[in-house]
Design a protein around this nucleic acid. Structure first.
Length: 427
RNA sequence: GGAGAGAUGCCGGAGCGGUCGAACGGGGCGGUCUCGAAAACCGUUGUUCUGCUAUCGCGGGACCGAGGGUUCGAAUCCCUCUCUCUCCGCCA
């Protein structure tokens, strides 16, 4: 969330920038500013009264020590009225602060200046593209058919075990998953990311820290008996490693990568969007996370984009990089690049990675700060993350684009990981 | 799941209900000494809200797991919750 001082100092700029996200914050901001004034008035009144009580209590302590009990008793009586007022004021203050917090939480992150205006994904701006578009016959098969005839992914079996959106990978399909995961992790580690294996369930505090809670709780699976949430992305546990942490400026950049399964309820999705591997409830993803100095976070974003691009190039997939417009960006992001690969049989672009700079928006929720060299006050750090990469749609595109008469060709870069370069048709 | 113990600052570890934001030790930082370093010695060392101040600062409030309560006054007493540790049971 934004800090109260950001809003207090530049309310008009905030409104203007949020309009790029098509968010009208006028009423929210003015309500916040009013509450903020009210809060400080109430607070100073409360503090003054509390200071008086504290002073009296100290006096009483001294009187009792000097055996002046009568004087002590009369001083005691003086505080009772004050204590009543303090009770009322602190209740008021708590209410105001709670209300303020509720309002602040509803304001999305400010889009970076370079974010293009727009409402939907149609308004996203292509930054660049690469790779060779596949040349496929008209009767090219979509990946769900290829999965069946090669017997590597069984969607029906997943239905039986759990429900739709929980496929079972089999044989070479399973091996391909592991190969991709290891390939991605190895490349990330080469690029300086430290691997972690985080918990797949998180508590409420973690969900709040990265911005999934309170608003998007319907998109996560909730384990009611223990009040845990299944992670929708490794971003949640990995970024929360740094919750309530004060780093030194010399610690930057902090770089982590993690492979995790991800769980998403995807309520409301339907149709061709959810066919096959296009949209699942459980899927595998390798994530990269960086914590960076505010002055360098945009260089870092570019570095991450280049890194993800390199991965896709090495898989020889046709791709394009989109800069998201204000309307298509997430609540928490300041600038986001989406990576899409082309799936030749479906003839669709599929999003396989989303790389974002959150600036201090998550850091404020996380209380993730750093101390400048020799500086006194801790300042909010910047957080960034991106998929490197999400597996299912990569697999879908690999399968569709590389289909040949009697199987599926595997890109050479994976051969050391799979041990095979063709997945043959088996039925 | 059963029984017990505990949660204090960067770490270890004290803390009769009254100048306790917290002894002491370690660490960090600054300094003295040194060609340099070590040792020794001296000093310093949390977060947060808020008022005044152009700034350096100065003043006030809060924070000793979290939330309530008792009291003129709570790290210290009471209640609830969470977490950790030990033992037993179960178990990959």
């Amino acid at each position: 969330m934004l800090t109260i001082s950001q809003i207090r100092e530049n309310p008009d700029e905030i409104l203007q920038r949020l309009s790029i996200k098509n968010f009208d914050a006028k009423d929210l901001v003015s309500e916040i500013l009013d509450l903020d004034i009210n809060r400080r008035l109430t607070k100073s009144e409360l503090d003054n009264k509390q200071a008086m009580v504290n002073a009296t209590s100290k006096t009483i302590g001294g009187l009792i020590k000097s055996n002046l009990h009568r004087e002590a008793e009369s001083a005691q009586k003086q505080t009772s009225a004050l204590k009543e007022e303090i009770k009322i004021l602190s209740r008021q203050l708590a209410e105001i602060e709670e209300k303020l917090e509720q309002l602040l939480i509803r304001i999305p992150n400010l889009p970076a200046p370079q974010v293009p205006p727009g409402k939907t994904s149609a308004d996203n701006v292509e930054v660049r593209s690469g790779g060779m578009m596949p040349v496929l016959p008209e009767n090219a098969l979509p990946h769900w058919d290829l999965a069946r005839i090669c017997d590597i992914i069984d969607f029906e079996l997943g239905n039986k075990l759990t429900g739709s959106g929980f496929p079972v990978y089999k044989g070479m399909g399973s091996k391909l998953q592991r190969a991709l995961i290891n390939f991605f992790l190895d490349e990330n580690i080469k690029a300086g990311y430290i691997e972690v294996i985080p918990p797949l369930m998180v508590n409420e505090d973690s969900g709040f820290g990265t911005g999934q809670l309170p608003d998007k709780d319907g998109q996560m699976y909730h384990v009611a008996s223990d009040n845990f949430y299944l992670i929708p992305t490794a971003e949640v546990p990995v970024t929360n490693i740094y919750r309530d942490v004060i780093l030194n400026a010399g610690d930057f950049p902090v770089k982590n990568t993690a492979y995790t399964p991800c769980f998403r309820r995807e309520a409301g999705s339907y149709g061709k969007d959810v066919r096959g591997l296009n949209r699942l409830h459980q899927f595998d993803k390798v994530e990269i996370v960086q914590i960076q100095h505010p002055g360098r976070s945009y260089e870092t974003l570019e570095e991450m984009v280049n890194h993800v691009e390199m991965l896709i190039q090495r898989l020889q997939l046709p791709y394009r990089i989109m800069k998201l417009c204000g309307g298509d960006m997430s609540f928490t992001a300041a600038l986001t690049y989406d990576f899409e690969v082309f799936a030749g049989a479906q003839k669709r672009w599929l999003e396989v990675s989303s790389v974002s700079n959150f600036e201090s928006f998550q850091a404020n929720r996380l209380k993730l700060r750093y101390r400048e060299e020799g500086g006194k006050k801790p300042l909010l750090a910047h957080t960034l993350n991106g998929s490197s990469l999400a597996l299912p749609r990569i697999v879908a595109a690999l399968m569709e684009n590389n289909q040949i008469k009697d199987g599926i060709r595997i890109p050479p870069v994976l051969l050391p990981y799979t041990g095979f370069d063709i997945i043959p048709v088996s039925v």
